[in-house]
Amino acid sequence: MTTRRRSRFRRPRGPVEHVAAGIVALAGAVLVLRMVLAVGRVLLGAWPLLVVAAGCALVVAVVIRLRRAAAQRRRGERLARLRLTLAEVDALSDRQFEFALRDLLIRDGWSARQVGQQGDQAADVIGRHPRRGRIVLQAKHTKVGGKVGSQVMYQVKGTAGPAHRADIAVVVTNGTFTRDAKTWGDKHQIHWVDRDRLRAWAEQGVALNDLLGLRDGARRRAFGRPAP
């Protein structure tokens, strides 16, 4: 069995080897310099094309940004005028109802997103406001005349703070709430929006903070969690 010896560089020995090594290094440096100069000449000759390409890229980037800004502005203008009748709300699917509540929050000055899905821990829409804090909406789209019971209030109370770090929790339905649900919600700081309040919010354009009496600067230690 033969073993292969690892090849390794040996330091030059003697004047002849030092001179030879210097010549090799100089040749390598000259070769690299020539390559750099050749690339420089190519780029120098192509600079008009590079300038045009860079200009085109800049124009495209500006156009895309302006289009996005215009789209956001148009959407903001549409949402500012957003009105939904109860008949339109009743015709929505459960998921569409969640997106409608998100848009109503945005109309009222919140940054909001729809998050409802399986395992959402009693939160379908989460919003944030610079003065009012963080809000969690639980959406209950039901048939006309349907009632939401206290169990929903218990669920929201149990997750609004620990799971979602909410300052404000609201249950919204196009139906009604049982008397016990409303009483328990009022006692435990779980706001509720029933069919009558939803009409004022969605159809008549009353802002949610006015509807529920949410004061600016009233962020508090909600649901037993420490203030941020």
Rank of each mutant, 00 (worst) to 15 (best):
D194P: 07
P130A: 13
R134G: 06
L137W: 06
D186Q: 13
Q138R: 14
A139S: 14
K147I: 13
Q189H: 13
H141Y: 04
S150T: 14
I135F: 01
M153C: 06
T142K: 07
A123C: 15
A139N: 01
Q121M: 12
G175V: 08
V171D: 08
G133W: 08
V125P: 07
R179Y: 06
K187N: 04
G149L: 07
V136K: 06
I135E: 01
I168A: 02
G145C: 08
H191L: 00
Y154M: 05
R134L: 10
D194F: 02
T183C: 03
H141F: 05
V125W: 01
D167L: 00
H188I: 01
N174S: 07
V193N: 10
D186G: 12
K157C: 07
I168Y: 04
T142M: 13
T173N: 03
V148H: 02
Q151S: 15
V144Y: 06
Q155E: 15
M153Q: 04
P130G: 12
W192P: 00
A139V: 11
S150K: 15
A123L: 10
K147T: 14
H164W: 15
V193I: 15
G127W: 01
I135N: 03
Q121A: 15
M153N: 01
V172T: 04
V170Q: 03
K143T: 14
H191N: 03
R131I: 05
V172K: 04
G127V: 04
K157E: 10
V144I: 12
V148P: 03
G149V: 11
V152D: 05
A160G: 12
R131P: 00
G185C: 06
H191M: 00
A181K: 03
V172M: 02
K182E: 13
H191A: 02
R165K: 11
A166M: 11
V170D: 04
T142L: 13
K187Y: 00
T178W: 08
V152P: 00
R179T: 15
K157A: 13
Q121S: 13
A123T: 10
K140E: 10
F177A: 02
R134P: 11
T142E: 10
A122H: 08
A139P: 01
V156Y: 05
Q189R: 14
K140I: 11
W184L: 14
T159E: 12
A139M: 08
W184F: 11
G185R: 04
R165D: 07
K182M: 13
W192Q: 13
V156C: 05
D180C: 01
G145M: 06
G146K: 02
Q138I: 08
G145K: 05
H164D: 12
I190Q: 02
R165S: 09
Q155C: 02
G161C: 09
G158K: 12
P162G: 06
A123W: 04
